[in-house]
Write a protein that binds this DNA or RNA. Structure first.
Ligand code: FES
Ligand code: FES
Lengths: 150, 150
DNA sequence: ACTAAATCCGACTATTTTTGTCAAGTATAA
DNA sequence: TTATACTTGACAAAAATAGTCGGATTTAGT
């Protein structure tokens, strides 16, 4: 099944969401997130590491430590989180590496690019704040299904 | 990198496109497609097999044989081809299997569903005819990037 | 009837990506 | 000083993807 968001991406977004809802920017520990979100502790560890290295979260060591957001939730896009975890969005290898089994890009390439842009745009336009508050629904309109008048 | 279309999907769409552009619905052989599109012959074979079983193409055996479309190109959507090859589009396991490491679906589920619908809609609305003619560009508008007025 | 071109089909292997696991270390609050 | 919690790199298991193979069947052309 293609066009999937891996657990890495989902776990990561759930984790950041959990940190985001913590009031007073109290640090949230891996243990807490792991327990509440049912994410394997050591796997989660890797994900938060990436997010920290990308500057999305900061860590506080020692007892009462954990992770806090580096920016306000309304300044973090879903795209950033996903990109930190899984790399830049690229639906096909021909968009990123130019690999396509063909030497030069084929006629379909602009189609992949357009599709890619549209998804990227959706992810760019939704902030972490909107994601956890549910406000994303206003921005991300339901698709209009064009019925075939056959 | 997530949200990728596998080579299976791309190879398949390229193959069907190649069959679609053949005039007079002359059958196109695996050998021809493999050579022209640089797709491994025996891999391609598997893909066309799936497409045939899903009723998108028909095969003609024996010399001068090959594959032809079962329907006019303007009656086949990109979504159908992709679905025949890779199964129904489902961005996350929580949409299809309900798996999420959580017992019940979390607050993010409707977001995944909406995103999924929007992509599905794009793929549904483009026909094979539009794909090979380039007419898809009119339907699939470029994403409008909302700039942050910070 | 024979031959060569072509699909059919299942099983198998290889490669890559995803999804974890582990162990030894560092920092710090109480 | 101790227990809590992050840090880091290496490793391992599992799943998905990508590709291969061998033998069978069908059929146009001669
Ligand atoms: S499918 Fe990659 S450039 Fe055509
Ligand atoms: S991430 Fe799957 S339901 Fe929440």
């Amino acid at each position: 099944m293609s066009l999937r968001i891996s657990t890495k991406g989902r776990y990561g977004i759930r984790a950041v969401s959990r940190i985001a809802v913590e009031r007073e920017s109290l640090p949230v520990s891996l243990h807490t997130i792991s327990r509440e979100e049912h994410i394997p502790l050591h796997y989660l560890e890797q994900l938060l590491l990436r997010l920290r290295r990308k500057g999305l979260v900061s860590s506080i060591r020692g007892p009462k430590g954990g992770y806090v957001l580096n920016r306000r939730p309304d300044r973090i896009s879903v795209a950033e989180i996903l990109e930190a975890l899984e790399g830049k969005l690229s639906m096909t290898d021909c968009l990123s590496r130019g690999e396509c089994s063909l030497d030069k890009k084929c006629i379909l390439n602009p189609f992949w690019a357009r599709l890619n842009d549209r998804i990227q745009s959706d992810l760019d336009n939704i902030t972490l704040e909107e994601l956890v508050s549910g406000a994303w629904e206003r921005k991300l309109k339901p698709a209009v299904h064009i019925k075939d008048p056959a």
